[in-house]
């Protein structure tokens, strides 16, 4: 035997008014949290707030570990065709403005230093899409490493 479907009972006007007020309050609260959470604090860049937050003279290993974690998952196998990029299926090689870099190898990193500076450090557009960008500490490590001449095992400093 099929049981009767539960009947739809129209709530009273007062009940509907209370429900509407609650929904309005809910939307208001959510919107307030949404808008107010978009703000940040702080007045100075990390280098001025706390210069010792990152090594003053980072080693290649310290820079490499950042690039390995953040860039190499996609930018590897330098010189690989752009077709992989267009196809939208990774891993893919770096864009032309990063010189076809391969951030998984020492020589590949040096090939992509220009692109690293332009897109990740100055432009802030890499990693792409909605991926988290470099942290301020990571940027400081990379900037200082570049300023020191980007010394590495494959391009040792004099």
């Amino acid at each position: 035997m099929t049981a009767a479907e539960p009947a739809t009972v129209r709530p009273s006007r007062a009940t509907r008014r209370r429900a509407r007020a609650r929904v309005a309050g809910f939307l208001l609260g959510t919107a307030a949290a949404f808008l107010l959470s978009a703000c940040g604090a702080g007045k100075l860049p990390l280098e001025q707030v706390d210069p010792l937050a990152a090594p003053l003279h980072p080693t290649y290993e310290q820079a490499f570990s950042i690039l390995q974690r953040t860039c190499a998952p996609c930018h590897r196998g330098g010189g690989a065709p752009q077709a992989a990029l267009r196809r939208g299926i990774g891993p893919f090689a770096a864009e032309e403005d990063s010189g076809g870099a391969d951030y998984a190898t020492c020589k590949g990193i040096h090939a992509g230093l220009g692109g690293l500076r332009r897109t990740a450090l100055d432009g802030g557009s890499m990693p792409p899409g909605a991926w988290p960008r470099f942290t301020e500490r990571e940027k400081l490590v990379l900037r200082r490493w570049l300023a020191d001449g980007a010394c590495s095992p494959c391009f040792p400093c004099p």
Binding site: C39, G40, A41, G42, L46, V49, D50, P132, T135
Partner: peptide, 20 residues
């Protein structure tokens, strides 16, 4: 969804806002 973080409240402009 919406998320936001300010990883260091003493540092200028290190926060990010994301909606999905």
């Amino acid at each position: 969804a919406q998320d936001w973080a300010d990883p260091d409240t003493e540092v200028l402009d290190d926060h990010a806002f994301r909606v999905s």
